[in-house]
Design a protein around this nucleic acid. Sequence first.
DNA 1: GCCAACGTTGGC
DNA 2: GCCAACGTTGGC
Length: 156
Amino acid sequence: LRTWLIKSEPDVFSIDDLAAKGRSGWDGVRNYQARNYMRDDMKPGDLCLFWHSNATPPGAVGLARVDGAPRPDPTQFDPESEYYDPKSTAAEPRWVMVDVAFHEKFPNPVTLESLKARADAFEGLLVIKRGMRLSIQPVEQAHFDAIVAAGRGQAP
DNA sequence: GCCAACGTTGGC
DNA sequence: GCCAACGTTGGC
């Protein structure tokens, strides 16, 4: 199993929204690299840091778990959706997503600032890189474990 | 609200 | 296939 980081703006879809729903399609991703991670590399059971972006403060607020095989993102076919893609067809869907299930919410969210403050321990962690906009990122196991420990309130 | 970073588009 | 223009992301 691999470990990941998935970004969401809490004003749009927060960790509490996922907790309330229990499970959700990770729809609306319109970046090819992020799509490819979902289509090719994310496997059921993989754990994902749930990241709040455009938040105060931005950071990892909990965990989601990949739940099921990749499938076409239904919003690409919906003309009413802001994610509608007229170039996508049912026969050849352009956008693929996975479903994720709520796993846990951290009692102590791990802020971007705190991760940047320990840049030596998190060398290579993509989310702390300037200009990194990718909304689905692989995370090394050791980095993942340290962030989860901090989120659960244990000394890192 | 600003703006750096960077992905996408489209003219050539 | 280059690359300038444009749009979006997302921290600050």
